[in-house]
Design a protein around this nucleic acid. Structure first.
Length: 263
DNA sequence: ATGTCACTGAAGCAGTGA
C-alpha cells in the first residue's frame, strides 16, 4: 500500500526488547513514518526508556515498563493525552497502556503468553482477558474511535495457524483462549485483519514465527498480533498489512510489525 | 522441531520466559 498524506497510520510491533531491536525500530520509523507506533515486550524499566532518542525522531512517547519482561509503549507524532497505565484488575505486570492522540483513542496491549494448559500463567491469561473485556466494554462510548493494537497471544481460528492439527489444544490455539478473544468481538470490536474484505481474500496474515525454526518460512507462522477496532474506528478504516520485511532482516524480532490505516 | 533469542545474576555460564 502506498503511503498517503491524508492517512493516519498505526503500527503495532512486539519488538522483543526495545534495546535489542533499536536499529530495526529506527529503520521502521524512518521508512514507514507512522503517526503512531504501539510497542510490546519493550523489556525496559521506565527510568531508562529511550524517550529522548525517540523525541529526536519526532515522537512523543508514553510507556509502562518493568525489568526483564513485558513492557508496552505508545509513540505518536501528535500530543498524547489521557494516558492510562494498566486497567482495573490487570495486575502489576506492564501489559497495557492507553492514551488519546489526534482525537483517536489508542492502546498497546501485550496479553500473557500462558505457557501451557494447566499452568498458573494459563489461568492468569484467561483472567487477564476477562478484566480486559470489562475495561474495554465499560469505557467504550458510542462515537469513540478506539484502536487496540498488540500481541494478543491468541490465534483466533484455524485459518490463523500454519498447521492447525499440530497446534490443536495447545497455547495459543485452545478453545478457552479463542473464546476469550471472541468475547471481545461480541462486545462490538472488530478484528481488523479478519473483517477487512481484501485481507480476508488474501489470508492468512501471520505475524509471528518461532525463532527455533532453522530458516524463516513465511508460510509457517501464526496470526497472534491484532488490531481491535471500535465501530467508529472500523468506519474510518482504510485497510492494513503485515510488514513482513522486518521479520527477514538481520536480528529480527520473532514478530513482524502490523500496520492499520485510518482516514 | 527442547532446533533460538533475550533477559538476569553473577561471573564468562545456567535458569527463565517466550
Amino acid at each position: 500500500m502506498s503511503f498517503k498524506k491524508d492517512m493516519f497510520s498505526v503500527i503495532s510491533w512486539n519488538v522483543n526488547s526495545i534495546r535489542a531491536r533499536w536499529l530495526l525500530l529506527e529503520q521502521l520509523l524512518k521508512q514507514e513514518k507512522p503517526d503512531v507506533v504501539l510497542l510490546q515486550e519493550t523489556k525496559i524499566e521506565d527510568k531508562i526508556f529511550p524517550e529522548e532518542s525517540l523525541g529526536d525522531f519526532g515522537y512523543n512517547v508514553c510507556f509502562y515498563g518493568q525489568k526483564s519482561y513485558n513492557g508496552v509503549a505508545i509513540l505518536s507524532r501528535h500530543p498524547l493525552e489521557s494516558i492510562q497505565r494498566g486497567f482495573l484488575g490487570s495486575s502489576e505486570e506492564a501489559r497495557y497502556i492507553e492514551a488519546e492522540t489526534q482525537g483517536i483513542r489508542i492502546a498497546s496491549l501485550y496479553a500473557p503468553n500462558g505457557q501451557d494448559v494447566g499452568m498458573p500463567m494459563y489461568a492468569r491469561k484467561l483472567d487477564f482477558y476477562e478484566q480486559l473485556r470489562a475495561h474495554l466494554s465499560s469505557t467504550l462510548s458510542s462515537c469513540d474511535v478506539f484502536v487496540i493494537g498488540g500481541d494478543y497471544n491468541v490465534a483466533p481460528t484455524d485459518e490463523d495457524v500454519y498447521d492447525p492439527q499440530k497446534w490443536e489444544g495447545h497455547v495459543p490455539c485452545t478453545d478457552a483462549e479463542r473464546a476469550a478473544f471472541t468475547a471481545l468481538l461480541a462486545d462490538g470490536f472488530a478484528d481488523a485483519f479478519a473483517v477487512w474484505p481484501s485481507l480476508q481474500a488474501s489470508a492468512p496474515h501471520f505475524t509471528w514465527w518461532d525463532y527455533r525454526f532453522r530458516f524463516f518460512d513465511p508460510k509457517k507462522g501464526l496470526r497472534i498480533d491484532h488490531f481491535l477496532l471500535s465501530p467508529c474506528a472500523l468506519e474510518q478504516s482504510q485497510g492494513g498489512e503485515v510488514l513482513l520485511a522486518y521479520r527477514t532482516l538481520p536480528r529480527p524480532s520473532d514478530h513482524a510489525p502490523i500496520r492499520w490505516m485510518l482516514r
